[in-house]
Amino acid sequence: MRRFSVVAAGAAVTLVGGLAVGGCVAENGGSAPAPDKGTASAEQQQAEEGGEEPQGGRSEAAGGERDDLVSFEIDDRSQAGFDNVWVTWTIRNRSSEKSDYTWDWEAVGPDGKRLYNSTEWVTDVQPGQTATGESPTTLKTPGVTINITEFNRSKSW
């Protein structure tokens, strides 16, 4: 009987702790298109209008942390009937500290239907350094739009 009460107490603590942590989740109000070489992002426009300060008090160039994602696009390398599609990215650390990056993205078809979503990680990018990467995907490129749904830069330890 004593063993049962210890297990029940442990389960109650786990449940309450899980609910408390689950309540801390913040939702992003929508998605933003992947970087476009010719237009300013919403975060960049907000920063230009006196928007948010960077997280953790780090100094950075004009614009927000989202501007560190220089490019993010689909690269279709398919040939001879074999699908070979990748997403490629370039990150440039414009902050004053070594940083880690994570971002969530989605691929949306011409009809507005989400076709794919994923998360990318880049770690240990030094100030001023540019990092590139790629990840395979099963996307077909015609008419697909890439949206960044969440983007975070944090201090790398």
Rank of each mutant, 00 (worst) to 15 (best):
S96D: 15
W103S: 01
E73D: 15
S95F: 03
W86P: 07
E97S: 13
W89F: 13
G81W: 01
W89D: 09
T90G: 00
N84I: 11
Y101G: 05
R77I: 04
V85M: 02
F82N: 02
R92V: 01
S96G: 11
T88L: 08
S99M: 01
W86R: 08
S96R: 12
R92T: 12
W89C: 04
D76I: 11
D83S: 09
E97R: 11
R77L: 14
R94H: 11
W89M: 07
E73K: 15
R94A: 09
S99G: 00
S96N: 14
S99H: 01
S95I: 04
W89E: 02
D83K: 13
E97M: 07
T88V: 15
Y101Q: 00
D100I: 08
V87F: 06
S78M: 09
D75T: 08
N84Y: 12
D100Q: 04
E73M: 14
N84S: 14
T88E: 12
Q79A: 14
D83E: 12
E73N: 13
D76Q: 11
V87A: 05
D83P: 05
S95M: 02
G81M: 03
V87R: 02
R77Q: 13
I74Q: 09
W86D: 02
S95D: 02
N93A: 02
T102G: 01
S99W: 01
R77G: 09
D75V: 13
S96Q: 13
R77D: 08
Y101I: 03
F82A: 15
D75H: 10
T102I: 05
N84D: 15
D100T: 05
Q79T: 12
W86N: 05
W89G: 09
G81V: 06
G81S: 07
T88C: 07
S96W: 02
N84C: 10
K98H: 00
S99V: 01
V85P: 11
Y101M: 05
F82E: 15
V87Q: 07
W86K: 00
D100F: 04
S78K: 03
V85Y: 10
S99C: 02
R92H: 08
D75K: 12
R92P: 00
W86S: 03
D100K: 08
D76P: 09
A80W: 14
E97V: 15
K98S: 11
R77M: 10
T102L: 06
